[in-house]
Amino acid sequence: MTNIAIIDYGMGNLRSVAKAFEHVAPQAQVRITHNRHDILAADRVVFPGQGSIRDCMRELAHAELIDVVQDAARNKPFLGLCLGPQALLDFSEENGGVECLKILPGRVVWFGELLDPASGERLKVPHMGWNQVHQVRDHLLWKGIPQDSRFYFVHSYYLQPTDEALTVGQSQYGFHFTVAIARDNLFAVQFHPEKSAQAGLRLLANFINWNP
């Protein structure tokens, strides 16, 4: 029986994430936790997040979970969601500039004033709603998910990894940008699989069955 820890550091709706995992893996033990021993003992770790990066980093430090997250991200199947992948990079422009976990090389950048290249009209920020995700590299977590499936997004900052090889998924909103990154045992997505209907549930199920 697989044991999944969803890291709780006070940011976002973890219940939805837990419910979605319970739905796709009724046999799994799903635990929302801020206890470092639970996280260290888990078979799989989910690192979610919502809100601002400054609060995210502050709450992680406050809960004394930074080293635990870094350890999990190096050693076991690890899934980052929404603000999660942003926190994994070196630095974010949000809140006047915030140093992040530096697990993967790269920055997090504001969308800014975007124009639709086709119509010349202003694009709304946050980038909110269902966008297509182009799988730019094969990965076991994409298994059974049709190319260019739509996932639910809501964010104003986007991932800019330094190493192009980290990008496994891209979307387009005025320009192409990275929405999924992966390396070894780590997979992280800007969108919300727990709110992305069938495609999202499939990705979560793939994570449960993934043995990197």
Binding site: W130, N131, F153
Partner: peptide, 8 residues
């Protein structure tokens, strides 16, 4: 190819 308009 891009963001869909939503029906709620």
């Amino acid at each position: 190819m891009g963001l869909a308009k939503r029906i709620i």
